[in-house]
Design a binder for these strands. Sequence first.
DNA 1: CCTATTATTGACTTATCGGTCATGAATACA
DNA 2: TGTATTCATGACCGATAAGTCAATAATAGG
Lengths: 195, 195
Amino acid sequence: MARPREFDIDQALEAATEAFWSRGYEATSMADLMQAMGLHKGSIYQAFGGKHALFMQALDRYLGAGLAQVQQALSDAGPVPDRLRAVLHGTLQDPAACQTARGCLGLNTLVELGPHDEVIAERVRTHYGRLREAFATCLAEGQRTGTIRTDTEADLLAEFLITTINGLQAGGKGYLSAVDQERVANVALDHLSPS
Amino acid sequence: MARPREFDIDQALEAATEAFWSRGYEATSMADLMQAMGLHKGSIYQAFGGKHALFMQALDRYLGAGLAQVQQALSDAGPVPDRLRAVLHGTLQDPAACQTARGCLGLNTLVELGPHDEVIAERVRTHYGRLREAFATCLAEGQRTGTIRTDTEADLLAEFLITTINGLQAGGKGYLSAVDQERVANVALDHLSPS
DNA sequence: CCTATTATTGACTTATCGGTCATGAATACA
DNA sequence: TGTATTCATGACCGATAAGTCAATAATAGG
C-alpha cells in the first residue's frame, strides 16, 4: 500500500554496471550514475543506498552472470578443449575496435579495489574460487577422457587458465590486439594437451 | 643565479611513485602526494606541473627502472630457463603478507587508465613492446642453444610470458597467494621446454 | 474518499578536489 | 652589497564530490 517504483531495479543496476565497467569505481561520479541510470540522486540513494552499496550490487550481478555463462559453456557437449577454447575466445576484445576497452569488470575491480576494500576483495576472491572450480571440473573431465594432460592437477591447470585470461584481459586494455590475444590464448591452450 | 631547490627531484618522484603505486591515480589526492613527498602544494606544481604531469614522470621513472632490471636479469649468464624463472619469481608478492598488495604500477595503470588516457596508454604500450623484445631476445637465445622449444616463435612465447606475468600480478592483488603464484608460474615455464 | 506508506524530485550541505597566486626567503652574479 | 631570479609557503579559488532532506506525488487498503 504505497507508491510503486517507476523504474526496473535490474535495468537500473545494469546501467550502473555499464558506467562502473567503463570508467572504474573512483572515476565514476554520482552524476555519471544519474545520467547512465536515468534516475535522480535521491532515487538511487533510496533504492540502492549509496555509491559503494550500488557498486557492490552491480558487481554481484555482473560476477554472477559471468560465472553462470562460463559454467554453462564449460558443461556443454563436445570435446573439452573445444569448450575451453570457446570460453577463452569469448573473453577477447579488440582495444582498437572498442572506443573504450572495458575488459572484465571483475579484473578491473580486483586491480583497483582489491588491496583497499576488504568487503569487495572477499567477493572477488570467492568469485575466482568458483571460476577455478568450474574450470577444474571441466579439465578433470578432459583428463579422464584423455584430451587433457594428466601430469598436472586439474586445479593448477585451472588456475593457470584463469591467470592467462586475466593477463589477456589486461593486455586487451591497451597493447594487445584481438588477433594477438588469440595467438597467446592458443599458446596457453596448447599447453593443456597430453604430451 | 637563483634560489636552489631544497629537495631532491628523484627522491620526491620516488615518494610520489609509492603513493600512486599503492592507491592508484584517481584515488591519490594532492594532499596524499604532499604528505608522501613531504612538499607543499606549490612546490609540487612548480617542480612537476600538476597531478597528471607528476604521474607521467613517476610512471616513466618506474617503467624505465623495471625494464632495465628485467633486461639485466635476462642477459645474465647461466641457462635461459633459469633467467626466465628468476624474472618471473622476482615479480611475485604475497597479498596476505603485504598490507596493500600494490602489484605492478605498469599493470595498475594499464587497467585503470589505459582505455581513457591516450598519452599514458602510449607510454604503457611502448613499455610492453620493449619488454616483449627483451623476453624474445632471451627466448631466441634459448632456442638456439636448445633449452627453449622451437615450434613457436620467440616473439609469441614472449607475449605469452608477459601475459602470464600480468595475470599473476592481478591475482596477487587479491586471490592468489605467493605459493600459488609460484605454482602457476612454473606451469607456464614448463610450457617453454622443448618437447 | 481518506489515510498510511513509499517513490520522486531537486535544492541544499559539507568536504574535498585540483589548481593558482601573492608573499617572503634564499641564492648567484655583478 | 644590491639585484635579479628562482624557490617555498600557505591562504585562497571555483568546481565538484558524495550524501541529506523536506516537499510533493502516487499508490493500496480501509
